[in-house]
Nucleic acid binder design. Structure first.
Lengths: 353, 353
DNA sequence: TTATATTATGTGAACGAACACATCGGCAAA
DNA sequence: TTTGCCGATGTGTTCGTTCACATAATATAA
């Protein structure tokens, strides 16, 4: 990496023209075996690193990448993801990469399906897909495979696709960790409660289902004798959780800890403060939403488990960039760190990218 | 960020030549007020984003950046940092940025001082400084200020320099967090022990000293009644820790937890396994060294506190890149996340950058 | 042998920005 | 009027790579 050799240097050293060197470097053929040999000999002695700057200036192809994520409000999980897209956009702009964002309703599989045809029309060179709806994603990926458009998966891993790479946490293990963090705060045989947040028509996302699986695995591995109760709660403005929760806790005063596997722990926070059970119940949630941070700081939520959404966004777009522009390939599966946030380290959790 | 306007486009739109536009964009003067007005009017309507690719190709300046870090063995903390440098080097190579690594002995301040003059000779456009020796770093920074060479600080923060930016954790708070993680595993009034790792001539690094301060703060804030014992241990091959530790634990069987504020928790691990006190003592350490991981997995170390050295390296070099090439300035202080690692999430801790 | 494919090789014009240099026009002093 | 000066403006080359195109060399068919 000391001296930067140029194609011109290689040409001079091997006594051919730059065109010939170019053809050899790119395996375009139309080169005699003598020329091939001469250039290869030179290439062995030096470490040629193409100047990517010059390359992408010369290529000046336009790339359009489409991201397919849930829509979001300020401060929510997918808003953080979107911030990562912003950063990537800035960084990749000069490479003639433009990013188009398609959003679906994360509680409505149909809204995802509707976007599939729009992607085909739009015409693009790469897609980033949030894998909330397993079956629909598989439909999309077969389409993309046929169109030969590369794609990256984010959020939860889905097997049997031809994605160029995946970024996201190991959902099962992140549930397992939640189990550990919860159980170390209570006694081995205490009861716990799993809150499930169900909107009408919602079928638990891949992610959420696997987290619960991991959580239960920890529970049974340690032969905990307490029961895991389940409470279905309503989404915002869909029903009265207060009544529901009051009834539950009146009946189940022995429950010492609760957990919710999506990012909506803050929803519970509101009720717990009102019901005044904040001190008697340990609560663990997911993802660093502004609303969740508030309750983590107040102590109502003891831990948040997080997964660096900005980094996921950035990396998945950079992976497509590497694939499209630099002709490099990545590891097929990249499990992201599973971050443990507590009151004391949350202020520093800003995920530099 | 939709259409990419070029200088040529602006020139055509405002009826002047590219040269004039260029002079206006770079405030080089020699432009009539009419031309100025015409171009400014166009610039207001479009959002000109210079093509950085083309710019850096045209500028074809060579930048040399020097990194100043401790030397290291495979798997150690500064080896991780070095991996981040590798990544940055790859990414910045095409911008004609070469990185030269100067290493000092982290237990010998003099070895750092000796490098200072070498930096002046070497001639460079930027420096990354690991701030282990506070006073020596201040000497270096005044020199660099005089030479007008920009620099970035990493590791622990040092006030009153003119660094363009800082990357590292908040040392005090990271000690405070260690306190919380330790105390939640034992009773409020249990005794704990702080291990200090002293090589001859070593004066606790800025980092380590501040961590201990934060730790003690947590202890006293919570009005813990246990005592904080201190044990000085030897470095590798510098003395017999086994004897020393045996003696200590024979006398102090009531000690329930230990902590060490540098990255050498693994050193203790070896002895604890031999002495067979692994189960009775909770131990917390710093940094994700290969050797530390081993003991975290075995359960001997309960938590590791980590600070993304690869990301620190990458970001500090990118900050210099932005400053030198893109003429952008960063936030002056960037506190990195304080990561909490446990047995269950350590496998995923690979710090994507 | 000449004409025609076929393959090998070299040349030169982009890409967008930067900057050195040439040129033009106006003005003032000679 | 001519000369010199200076500010304003445009032109053209450069960066390293890519690629279309022109040319040269060779093989094949008539």
């Amino acid at each position: 990496m000391n001296k930067a050799y140029r194609i011109k240097d290689i040409a001079k050293l091997s006594g051919v023209s730059t065109g010939t060197v170019d053809r050899i470097l790119h395996k375009r053929g139309r080169v005699s075996s003598e020329a091939q040999a001469k250039v290869e000999k030179v290439l062995k002695h030096i470490n040629y690193q193409p100047n990517l700057i010059a390359r992408s200036l010369a290529l000046k192809k336009n790339y359009k990448i489409i991201t397919l994520t849930p829509s979001f409000e300020q401060g929510e999980y997918w808003a953080k993801f979107s911030e990562g897209i912003d950063k990537a956009q800035q960084e990749l702009f000069s490479y003639n990469i433009i990013i188009e964002r398609f959003c679906f309703n994360q509680y409505d599989r149909n809204s995802f399906d509707l976007l599939i045809s729009r992607i085909e029309q739009a015409g693009c060179q790469g897609v980033v897909i949030a894998t909330l709806f397993r079956e629909s994603v598989l439909n999309l990926t077969t389409l993309l495979d046929r169109l030969q458009i590369p794609y990256v998966l984010v959020d939860a891993y889905i097997e049997n696709t031809h994605c160029i790479t995946y970024y996201g946490t190991h959902s099962y293990d992140s549930g397992y960790i939640a189990g550990r963090l919860l159980m170390e705060q209570i006694d081995k045989n205490d009861d716990v409660v799993v809150f499930r947040f169900i909107r009408k028509g919602d079928q638990c996302s891949t992610q959420v289902a696997k987290r619960e699986e991991g959580f239960r695995a920890y529970f049974s591995e340690r032969a905990c004798q307490g029961t895991i109760q389940v409470v279905q709660i309503y989404g915002e403005k869909e029903g009265d959780n207060k009544e529901l929760l009051t009834a539950f806790f009146n009946k189940n005063r022995q429950v010492k800890a609760g957990i919710i596997f999506n990012s909506r722990a803050c929803l519970l926070g509101e009720y717990f403060e009102e019901l005044n059970i904040a001190n008697s119940l340990k609560l663990i949630g997911y993802d660093v939403l502004d609303a969740n941070i508030k309750y983590l700081k107040s102590g109502l939520i003891t831990h948040l488990i997080a997964q660096r959404p900005e980094v996921q966004a950035m990396n998945s777009l950079k992976a497509l960039f590497r694939y499209l522009v630099l002709d490099m390939k990545d590891e097929p599966v990249n499990y992201m760190p599973i971050d443990v946030l507590i009151k004391e380290n949350i202020t520093y959790y800003n995920n530099y990218i």
